[in-house]
Amino acid sequence: MKNARIVAIEYHLPGEILDTARLSAEHPGWNADKLDQASGIRQRRIAAAGECASDLAVAAAEKLFATGLLHREEVDFLLFCTQSPDFLVPTTACLIQHRLGLPSSCGAVDYSLGHSGYVYGLGLAAGLIASGQANTLLLLTGETYSRYIHPEDKSSRVIFGDAGTATLIRATDEAGTMGPFVYGTDGSGAENIMVPAGGARLPRTQATALAQTDENGNTRSENDLRMKGAEVFSFTLAAVPASVQQLLERAGCEMSEIDAFVFHQSNRYILEHLRKKCGIPREKFLVALEECGNTVSNSIPLALKLCRERGQLMPDQLLALVGYGAGFSWGAALVRW
């Protein structure tokens, strides 16, 4: 049986910068300095009008091709994780197959997950390779949550940034390159990170477009993203340490054998609490969100690549990845990259 291996990761960030100074100028009452100090986010990158999540992912994929590590005709499967598809129909991955000039023998599928999406994508890729269905996969993530955020919603606007990433995954005979995996789902928490209107359950109407201000001073309509911070944090406190524990048990390894932990980059305050709660040494816990914010399913591959560029990660290290968020959905995996 073949195993899956991450060969390379590339990313693309949109050009517009929403930094602390701009937030402070636009919203003097928000105390953006203090918020950004706590979250560790100094700027977010925002997609331009008309720039889609797929555009960001395609730009990242083109960077992968430019490395010369793979040829377009080699790709036999394309996975695209997004909650910002180009159209309701058809599948955005099909459009990306065409744009990237991938062969027509290539399978292509979208899947909708938020902050846990990258770990699930690795799991799907590992399964496709282990079952002999694919050898060379592109796992793309792309997200433009900024489109879903009301400009007066402090709770989300200070956190989220847009991004796209591309990961090349190949079949290998080597052992221990990807897995085990741990997954979890609690749909009872669905409403805590949600865009209520715009899908089949609640189509957009004039009524859903009416903005209201909540008790914390955040303004949004049902067409916009809402995130209930306390509920999300409470879920995270339960799910993340347990999934780290399960992952180590399933792998039969000690924490000391892991070279680095890369969690979904939610915000520094929450990450630091989770690090302490899990008992992970500071030097093994990577944080990379200062320049891009919380980029949803992009955050883990983005952090992996940024940390490699900064020299905080070396090739062939054993890494524990943990994604958690909208759904509620979470997943953890070991990878050697």
Partner: peptide, 15 residues
């Protein structure tokens, strides 16, 4: 006493 403080309280109680 707002949503930010509530998150801080959750962290405090957890610790």
């Amino acid at each position: 006493w707002n949503s930010m403080a509530m998150i801080g309280y959750l962290a405090l109680a957890d610790s």
